[in-house]
Design a protein around this nucleic acid. Structure first.
Lengths: 146, 146
DNA sequence: CCATTATGCATAACATCCTTATGAATGCAC
DNA sequence: GTGCATTCATAAGGATGTTATGCATAATGG
């Protein structure tokens, strides 16, 4: 490549990401989750039990909306409400086994679809993407800690 | 780890993309578009005028749903309905200037937010991402032509 | 060339999922 | 304890999606 300045362009990255977003959105069909439901379940899978208000803020959703979403997901067996021992106002929400399994299934759907597309690329392109993965991981990492 | 080949992993890419997706979703606030509206407008901006049914299929939405969405976006001045000369059943939908401008504004929002995060990365990470951009562009390119 | 069938869009009725406003229970500060 | 803050739930309504259906136009086949 160049040895000069390799300017990383947010604009170019956004254009690519926009298309990957629609791609991913169309591929993940298992479980019939709304966007908010998917994101909330994802969060619970990563961070463990959270309060309803906490979860709502994390998803930029209203607290009543999150209460209702939790009720729906609870009815479908994806999450469980538990009491917080030291504060009886708080309701902790955690993913059930079925919820975690659904997450994995959806991720597998996406991964497989992506993999098929990756496999059709030139080896050099595949290598370039593979080489950028750690950097992209750090990008989202630095993002989530604000 | 256990082999020498630089294997591009769909699974790892999906994990990173999932987080970038939520990031982007939270950043794009201009115009207050639904996910479907954003995707449809994006499509119109890229591919020009399309029929309502065509547009619905592209977004995996129902045709009546797309009719209603087009009606709403038309009311907001984002798209325009025009007649197709050689088939009077078909209604062609195209983005207006205001629609295209809104697309650009949303993209700029996303790009700026991403850029700020990119700027905080190590130069090597920035370079790795920049180097992977053409490959990622080809990835989505090969995707959209199916 | 006319009857039949297919296609494309719109409308109606309804479901889902979000919002704001508000209430009830619990915790905290004084 | 009284008053205020916090947390979740409920109620009511709005936005946005769905399926079922109708109407206009086009294509097809005797």
């Amino acid at each position: 490549m160049h040895n000069g300045v390799m300017q990383t362009s947010g604009t170019e990255l956004v254009v690519v990401l926009e298309q990957l977003v629609t791609f991913i959105r169309q591929v993940s069909t298992a479980g019939d989750l709304s966007a908010t439901a998917s994101a909330a379940l994802h969060r619970l899978g990563r961070d463990g039990a959270l309060g309803v208000t906490e979860l709502a803020q994390a998803q930029r959703a209203s607290q009543p909306g999150m209460t209702q979403l939790v009720t729906r997901m609870e009815r479908e067996g994806l999450v469980r409400r538990t009491a917080k021992t030291d504060d009886r106002r708080t309701v902790l929400v955690e993913a059930t086994e079925a919820g975690l399994e659904l997450l994995n299934r959806r991720r597998a759907e996406r991964a497989e679809a992506l993999q098929q597309t990756l496999d059709r690329l030139d080896p050099e392109d595949q290598a370039a993407i593979a080489a950028a993965l750690p950097a992209l991981a750090r990008l989202v990492e630095s993002r989530s800690s604000d």
